[in-house]
Amino acid sequence: MKKLLTPLVLLGLVSGCVTTQSPTGRSQTLLFSAAEMNQLGAASFEEMKKQQKISKDTKLNAYVSCVAMRVTAALPDQTQGWEVVVFDSPQVNAFALPGGHIGVYSGLLKVAENQDQLAVVLGHEVAHVLAQHSNEQVSRTQLTNTGLQLADVALGAGGVSNRNLYMAALGLGTQVGYILPYGRAQESEADVMGLELMARAGFDPRAGTLLWQNMAKAGGDQGPELLSTHPSHGTRIAELARLEQKVMPLYEAARASGVKNCQITK
């Protein structure tokens, strides 16, 4: 009976999926609604806060929150608030989850040397959410792992079973032992959208190449965890150099409108 149920469940998933286009025109298959993804993001973020030590450094929290709030304020049709948490960890990493959640590891601040460089990272991570990359990842997980049935994911009942796998699909796999990485197309898309987003927020996009040069130096040949699933250093830096010039007018317009830097320093 179980062997018969799995194809039937998958058939139901495929029939209920939505094929749409990403902001840059890629085809996306999405199985979950925005409400379901927001619930999954919230549940996963709560789990992260239980697993990880949260920084109590008031100044550091204020600094990260200021940069994050400026970046998210530049989102189109921004109506939700964003929860920002700094985790006290040497990891050079950050993430954003559906439902308005941002996590930044304090180790990132040793590589992102100023608020412009931090905004590059946060813009990139928020862009993953904006482009529904998490939905793509979780949908791919659901479709390719036939043992995981939609009936097993109690999203509507307030719980998340198969928690570790779904956290991995959300990009949190380093905390649970494995990861389901974003694809190169998704990473490149997040670079394009993220750099535009941070420029609209009044952060200097020229910080992008400087940040990734710093990243390339961090942690030896492989770089920090943040780079583990990303394009090669040289490829990313070359592409960012091209993108920087394209979005410079957005940055200049934001500065001309009176947008000012965060006065809080790390």
Rank of each mutant, 00 (worst) to 15 (best):
residue 225 E to H: 02
residue 7 P to H: 03
residue 165 L to H: 04
residue 30 L to T: 09
residue 250 L to P: 02
residue 123 G to R: 12
residue 69 M to F: 10
residue 139 S to G: 06
residue 210 L to I: 00
residue 156 G to D: 05
residue 7 P to L: 01
residue 35 A to Y: 02
residue 257 S to L: 06
residue 10 L to Q: 11
residue 10 L to E: 11
residue 190 A to H: 11
residue 62 A to W: 08
residue 120 V to A: 14
residue 26 R to M: 05
residue 193 M to I: 02
residue 172 L to H: 07
residue 39 Q to V: 03
residue 162 N to K: 00
residue 143 L to R: 10
residue 152 D to K: 00
residue 238 A to H: 07
residue 72 T to C: 15
residue 254 A to P: 06
residue 181 P to E: 13
residue 232 S to Y: 02
residue 230 H to D: 07
residue 73 A to L: 09
residue 195 L to H: 09
residue 46 E to V: 09
residue 55 S to Q: 04
residue 37 M to K: 06
residue 70 R to M: 13
residue 221 D to M: 15
residue 111 V to G: 07
residue 29 T to E: 01
residue 159 G to P: 01
residue 68 A to M: 13
residue 108 L to T: 14
residue 119 A to T: 09
residue 53 K to L: 15
residue 173 G to Q: 07
residue 168 A to P: 12
residue 176 V to W: 02
residue 43 A to Q: 01
residue 256 A to G: 11
residue 88 D to C: 14
residue 51 Q to G: 02
residue 47 E to S: 02
residue 126 V to Y: 09
residue 188 S to I: 00
residue 109 L to F: 02
residue 262 C to Y: 07
residue 12 G to K: 05
residue 35 A to D: 14
residue 248 M to D: 08
residue 213 Q to C: 03
residue 162 N to A: 03
residue 258 G to K: 04
residue 111 V to N: 06
residue 108 L to S: 12
residue 174 T to N: 15
residue 122 L to C: 11
residue 69 M to W: 10
residue 11 L to R: 07
residue 172 L to G: 03
residue 77 D to M: 11
residue 87 F to S: 01
residue 25 G to L: 10
residue 158 G to N: 11
residue 44 S to I: 08
residue 243 L to P: 07
residue 196 E to Y: 05
residue 134 S to V: 08
residue 134 S to T: 10
residue 126 V to A: 09
residue 100 G to N: 13
residue 169 A to T: 08
residue 223 G to E: 09
residue 55 S to R: 02
residue 252 E to N: 07
residue 117 Q to N: 13
residue 50 K to I: 14
residue 203 F to T: 01
residue 103 G to C: 07
residue 189 E to K: 03
residue 169 A to H: 03
residue 39 Q to C: 13
residue 101 H to V: 00
residue 13 L to R: 01
residue 11 L to V: 11
residue 213 Q to P: 01
residue 140 R to V: 04
residue 248 M to G: 05
residue 142 Q to Y: 09
residue 125 E to C: 08
residue 9 V to K: 02
residue 170 L to M: 15
residue 4 L to N: 08
residue 74 A to W: 07
residue 63 Y to V: 10
residue 16 G to F: 13
residue 222 Q to N: 14
residue 137 Q to Y: 02
residue 201 A to Y: 02
residue 124 H to N: 13
residue 60 L to E: 14
residue 207 A to K: 08
residue 241 A to K: 10
residue 68 A to I: 04
residue 77 D to A: 14
residue 45 F to R: 00
residue 189 E to V: 00
residue 21 Q to P: 09
residue 112 A to W: 07
residue 198 M to G: 01
residue 117 Q to E: 15
residue 115 Q to P: 15
residue 58 T to Q: 12
residue 46 E to Y: 12
residue 229 T to N: 13
residue 123 G to M: 15
residue 140 R to A: 03
residue 64 V to R: 01
residue 23 P to V: 00
residue 146 T to A: 14
residue 77 D to S: 10
residue 111 V to L: 10
residue 18 V to I: 14
residue 98 P to H: 03
residue 188 S to E: 15
residue 30 L to C: 08
residue 32 F to C: 06
residue 28 Q to V: 10
residue 159 G to F: 11
residue 229 T to M: 06
residue 66 C to P: 11
residue 133 H to E: 07
residue 157 A to D: 04
residue 186 Q to W: 09
residue 24 T to H: 06
residue 257 S to E: 14
residue 96 A to M: 12
residue 15 S to K: 03
residue 132 Q to D: 15
residue 253 A to N: 06
